[in-house]
Nucleic acid binder design. Sequence first.
DNA 1: GAAATAAGCTTACTATTAGTTAGTTTATTC
DNA 2: GAATAAACTAACTAATAGTAAGCTTATTTC
Lengths: 118, 118
Amino acid sequence: MDECSPKMITPNECQGICKDFHSTIEFIGKRWVGVIIYSLLQGPKRYHQILAEIPGISDRLLTERLRDLEKEGLIIKRVDKTSQKKVEYELTSAGKELEKVIAAIMHWIQQKGKSQYQ
Amino acid sequence: MDECSPKMITPNECQGICKDFHSTIEFIGKRWVGVIIYSLLQGPKRYHQILAEIPGISDRLLTERLRDLEKEGLIIKRVDKTSQKKVEYELTSAGKELEKVIAAIMHWIQQKGKSQYQ
DNA sequence: GAAATAAGCTTACTATTAGTTAGTTTATTC
DNA sequence: GAATAAACTAACTAATAGTAAGCTTATTTC
């Protein structure tokens, strides 16, 4: 009980969250997941667009992570009816709500940057 | 320029942030880093306390991650003057400010959980 | 006060995950 | 109709994580 309750959550909010927190942070923290979501927050994108925008990622890992994100319900894959080579990836509403998490991270980076030059 | 600006930041906020964002999310998303910070948000703790509270982590990796976190300035290691076997790890102010990121993740988990049963 | 236990690691090894290279299939462009 | 591109997939190597054992310095127990 007490090993899973930092100050910001009350004990009875703590039931399922602690297990979930671990798996969630491990999932969204998996290599490239954050930057893929960050990229898709701008709007739906095609496979090679994402690949080009994320320097360093390999195509194999991009495919793997897109599948993971799809399975988790954070993105949807749209294949064009006329051509199965036109594929678009779009965040679901759950995926879009991660914007707040990403915003919190960016806010933290900015704060940290400032305090270094104080 | 446009490949690194989701809607929530303005173009001129985007200068150093985009490079930083990638490295930051890859760092705090590294396996176990999130749960270690989560655990230390409750207050300073000793090595074996953390080890016992995080099921699944190995002692080798805990040591490695504690060193990483120290190097990044997110935690400090305090060794007792009387015995070098009394070691405590404590979040720095930068480390403590990650509470907001963690709160955002927990909020996201709760929202997601709710929407499944709507 | 010696022997046993515990804290906080370190080293050596195996298993898993990531990255690289090459190749495949369906569209589109020249 | 040949060449290029999109979106993968497979096979392989490199890097990272996990496991098991041991080491050193307290502290506790008898």
